[in-house]
Design a protein around this nucleic acid. Structure first.
Lengths: 343, 343
DNA sequence: ATGTTGACTGCAACCGGTTTCATTTTTCGA
DNA sequence: TCGAAAAATGAAACCGGTTGCAGTCAACAT
């Protein structure tokens, strides 16, 4: 650092230089939202003083008076930092939405990594209680996560997936159940009867919701399904899905199924690779469906339902603003964002 | 939100309940770093009061007294949010380092998106001046970015890549020049003479440094290189590199080169794909080199040099702590992290 | 001329901690 | 047993803003 030009410059310096009171300076600084008028002459004097000192109000003092930090926390699972995270196009898409919604506001985003220690110390609660953050967005909760019920007293929104017992909390998710229900319904209409299901981890509410939608579609058509034998488990990623399903195509005869539904597009694309490598043609030899509408899988001709990730982030921030601005307690709102089936 | 149990609880409540002064409560709360002792009996009374009220000190008040926010900003280019970002294993790796270094500290990470507006308003400066953040890490600067010189007055560190005129700023980068120099030196030792270079955008200091290392290695061996004809440009990604270089393998005769050096592994892997698709064998028919040591390219037998991304993040935070703690001005330190050639 | 209104501004308290300094109490050696 | 040093605590100022309330002053109607 060069010479410290950071001569502490406070509102008092400005007031003195402009020969007005601190209150008046403060009023000018916040002129936007105050009803108290300030004369043009005074405004000019203060503007000049601010220019002279190159003054910038102290954010922490402002935070104290407002009893607000103007910061929203975004908690992400630690594994989202792994190599795979970056493949979390859902998070990335949502981030675009967060960014867009935050831009015109005074708020900033604090990135919180959900480590072991962090959860044990209930740090998410501490941050809220201490007013270190004004609200918390929780991305990618899994049913193994336990959150303190006191969290419901604060502006907190679960995004995209839910922990167990989320009924008392506020959340926004894609309508995975409905998407899966519709999508599978279409497959049935198209003639599919013998299904296989490649599920993501059931600790994830997304897998669960999609699977339930799948089962409901089958039930409506009175198609039986043997969970034990006809459901397989993957990890949301392409490589493992490819490896896992390759053996099922190692036959020249009847495959034993006429449709594979996967928890997401990444896995479906893995299945696609495995099938084509074995000379089978998805869409012809059997139906292949995923979920998400992932750009990374755009080159694969998958049946899927598309979720609007940008909207999730955008809506998350704007709903957060509502919660923060709401003076009193709010009934937790739980919102499903519509998805669009794409064949 | 349910019933607000957030009855504002301050240090005064605790003091009153425990029948001590606010100063004493404050001392107990910060017992770690104070030399003033507090008797065990008093400690116990205060602990009881804290438990009774479920008290948590107000972070914003603390921020004001300390004149510190205990927040470090991390600025990332907006394009890092795009689909590609996810392939920025460098940022992800560094984030692991940031996280690890932050964990034992009091500091948190504020995520700042480098939008058009943000740069124009010099918001990075405002945040520092207003004490909204205590320091700023700038990831992925390009030479087109213009930063205010006043930035040098604050704890600011450029990470991984640099803007034009970075000499007055503090930064930490991998030693891309040296890595490239050594790597290409090895290729020459192995007999390579006719080089092609697949560069990333020159607006990125990483591309530039690596290219310079390459040229230096050639110069040392007195190998000529025709920049106009023998250098190609890509965008750091696999697909474009594959498409770009495929035509060069559309011959059954002499390729016209015996080594291709790329700005990074992702592009090298694209070249690998293009070559093998055309029946050529990298490593045998010609040498193929990249840079980074990317996990995503681990399955490709590339010659490369590996950079320690975790270390970059970890070091970045710890150096940041030094800068923040340093009372006075600091001479900007500019640090190259060693890389390791891998054949 | 006078009362009233509304525009404008300042005083002072407040937000909730931290920290310096002075004071009181205790400990302990001589 | 007494005095000095060490331990423990409290009073009050301070960090740098915001804001309710009261007061000043000019304009305007009567």
């Amino acid at each position: 650092m060069r010479e410290k030009t950071n001569k502490a410059c406070t509102i008092s310096n400005i007031a003195e230089y402009a020969q007005v009171s601190r209150s008046t300076v403060s009023r000018v600084l916040n002129n936007v939202n105050t009803k108290v008028p300030v004369s043009a002459a005074t405004r000019a004097k203060i503007a000049e003083a601010i220019r002279h000192f190159d003054y910038m109000p102290n954010a922490n003092a402002r935070r104290l008076s407002h009893n607000k930090s103007f910061i929203i926390g975004l908690q992400v699972p630690a594994h989202h930092l792994s190599r795979y995270v970056f493949t979390d196009y859902n998070l990335i898409g949502a981030m675009h939405g967060l960014e867009a919604a935050l831009l015109p506001s005074d708020y900033k985003l604090l990135l919180l990594f959900q480590s072991e220690k962090y959860m044990q110390k209930h740090e998410y609660l501490s941050l809220l209680k201490s007013k270190s953050i004004d609200g918390l967005l929780i991305w990618g909760a899994t049913c193994g996560d336990h959150y303190d019920a006191a969290l419901a007293d604060y502006p907190v929104i679960f995004l995209n997936s839910l922990p167990a017992g989320a009924s008392g909390f506020e959340w926004i998710c894609h309508d995975n159940h409905q998407g899966s229900l519709e999508l599978v319904g279409r497959l049935i209409e198209a003639g599919a009867r013998r299904f296989r299901y490649l599920s993501g981890p059931l600790s994830n509410s997304i897998s669960l919701d999609r699977y339930c939608g799948f089962r409901e579609a089958l039930a409506q058509a009175q198609i039986p399904f043997d969970e034990e034998r006809e459901r397989w488990f993957g990890d949301f990623h392409r490589d493992s899905a490819r490896a896992l399903t390759a053996p099922f195509f190692e036959t020249s005869g009847d495959l034993g199924f006429d449709a594979i539904v996967c928890s997401n597009d990444m896995m479906a694309s893995g299945v696609y690779d495995a099938a084509t490598a074995a000379g089978r043609q998805p869409g012809k030899d059997f139906q292949l469906a995923g979920g998400d509408g992932a750009d990374d899988c755009a080159q694969y001709p998958l049946k899927t339902f598309r979720s609007d990730r940008f909207a999730l982030g955008f809506r998350g921030i704007n709903r957060m603003f509502e919660l923060i601005d709401a003076a009193g307690p709010q009934e937790p709102r739980q919102e499903y964002l519509p998805v669009q089936v794409q064949l």
